[in-house]
Design a protein around this nucleic acid. Structure first.
Length: 463
RNA sequence: GGCCAGGUAGCCAAGAGGUAAGGCAGCGGUCUGCAAAAUCGCUAUUCACCGGUUCAAAUCCGGUCCUGGCCUCCA
């Protein structure tokens, strides 16, 4: 059984996709006007875990992520640099893909959909809304008429009769019938316009996700995700647009992840308290550790980012990899340990049940640590055989499809370093420990860490 | 003001009526020529606070305090 917390009902619900074994997910993606910060990536990592877990559970996942390449910020950026919108957004799109690759966020089986490539779909949706009387034209812009959707506020659980309207009113929105009405189509006011059946202009923000979601996933689909800051107004507006246009429910499950905090405050561009992935990599942090840190707190809890936690995450990831390396290269074949075999089965069950419980990752990880613990114990007690080790590495590899913390083994090494390792072994045999230690520290400076095992020295790259 | 999330050891973090998982760091022991890795042991009578319900509460109820978010672009 899989359950997810649905923002719509504020409850954990049993997950039942509309079509058996197929899950259709729309995930809100980046606006490509700058490098994404790690708060943004927290959301993408959460979605990545969700996606990978559903695949792990045997679902076929059909997923769309939008790339918002037309909005005020991208336009301002392009104007500032005096280049075309495409030229401007292209470099941030590229950067985005570089970054998510480093964070091991999957890109296969995902449709990355650019707003600028889906203008006709948006125009069609707006046309439908106009025809049905849920939208109206004022000046050259088109607005959604909220009064025609009585359920407005269902997702955010706002009672609009009790809420004051926002104070800031956009200059091009003064003609709205009601202050809450939101723009579907912004009438032409600069060069960034499309000439369409509904007039010259460009799409509003909310319409793009609706149009692209329905284009690829249908009028009703399983899941829609994003950060909690998208609940209102973005996702609320999407529901309004889609359900008024199609007369059908838009999305079954809404999942939202909490913010990444810095010094107790939301990490955001406007506050200036953000780290980009690039900032952290420049400081020498390991992208896998960053992934681990961002995924190891439950997605619905706020996570306070500190470099100290990042260091902790790095140590944990190192331990994980040390363990994996250990069992892969261990040359031991004593008697089979039935308890370990049992525990392997148990570990996988815990992993599945925990992630199936609204992605309880702490619990899932704890299960793996228990297995590591017992395995190490069994190794010390010589109570383990090759078959056990294979069972264990199989589990570790399997869960790693979801977690993505294992690193490839270093398979090549300089001949020069190899010679140094041999020289040190020779020195140790001759009990010339000062020479041996000297070589060891030289190697360390070169980023090679030595471990002396009963079976001879083992080396690893310093991480 | 309305709505929402959260407050559990030095740090991170599970648990949601049955007597505090796990990780990191630290300390002590084993192993080692010394390290590293591994391992063993120790590290919250207590879960923001105050009442209440119960045989039993970190978990339920009432109240209080604190932090953050949304209500305007935002993952």
């Amino acid at each position: 059984m899989i359950t997810f917390f649905n923002t719509l009902t504020r409850k954990k619900e049993i997950f039942q996709p509309i079509e058996d074994k197929i899950v259709k997910i729309y995930t809100c993606g980046p606006t490509v006007y700058d490098f994404a910060h790690i708060g943004n990536f927290r959301a993408y990592i959460f979605e990545d875990i969700l996606h990978r877990f559903l695949e792990y559970e045997g679902f076929t996942v059909k997923r769309v992520m939008n790339i918002t390449d037309i909005d005020d910020k991208t336009i301002i950026g392009a104007l500032k640099e005096n280049i075309s919108l495409n030229q401007f957004t292209e470099k941030y799109i590229e950067a985005f893909f570089e970054d998510i690759k480093k964070l091991r966020i999957k890109t296969d089986n995902i449709i990355f959909s650019r707003a600028t490539e889906n203008i006709p779909e948006m125009v069609n949706l707006i046309k439908t809304l106009l025809e049905k009387g849920h939208a109206y034209k004022k000046e050259n812009s088109i607005y959604f008429r909220i009064s025609s959707f009585p359920e407005y506020g269902r997702l955010s659980h706002f009672d609009f009769s009790k809420i004051k309207t926002g104070t800031s009113v956009d200059a091009d929105e003064y003609e709205k019938e009601s202050a809450r009405d939101f723009v579907l189509w912004k009438g032409e006011k600069d060069d960034f316009s499309w000439d369409t059946e509904i007039g010259k202009g460009r799409p509003g923000w909310h319409i793009e996700c609706s149009a692209m979601g329905m284009k690829y996933l249908g009028e009703t689909f399983d899941m829609h995700t994003g950060g909690v800051d998208n609940i209102f107004p973005h996702h609320e507006n999407e529901i309004a647009q889609c359900e008024m246009a199609t007369g059908k429910p838009f999305v079954k499950y809404w999942l939202h992840c909490q913010h990444l905090m810095v010094n107790g405050e939301k990490m955001s561009k406007s506050k200036g308290n953000f780290y980009t992935l690039r900032d952290l990599l420049k400081k020498g942090y390991d992208p896998v550790a960053i992934r681990y840190l961002l995924m190891s707190t439950h997605y619905r809890d706020p996570l306070n980012f500190t470099e100290k936690s990042l260091q902790q995450a790095k140590n944990t990831v190192d331990r994980w990899n040390d363990f994996y390396r250990r069992i892969k290269f261990l040359n031991i074949d004593e008697r089979k340990n039935e308890q370990i075999s049992q525990q392997c089965i148990k570990t996988e069950n815990i992993f599945r049940e925990s992630l199936g419980d609204d992605l309880n990752i702490s619990m899932a990880l704890a299960g793996i640590f228990e297995l590591m613990h017992s395995t190490n114990n069994s190794i010390t007690e010589n109570n383990i055989n090759r078959e056990n080790l294979e069972e264990i590495s199989k589990i570790i590899e399997k869960v790693d499809y979801v977690l993505q913390v294992l690193k490839p083994f270093e398979d090549s090494i300089d001949a020069e370093i190899l010679t140094l390792i041999e020289k040190r072994e020779q020195a140790r045999k001759e009990k010339d420990f000062s020479q041996a230690d000297k070589i060891r520290s030289i190697l360390q400076e070169k980023g090679i860490i030595l471990e002396d095992t009963p079976l001879g020295p083992r080396w690893k790259q310093k991480k």
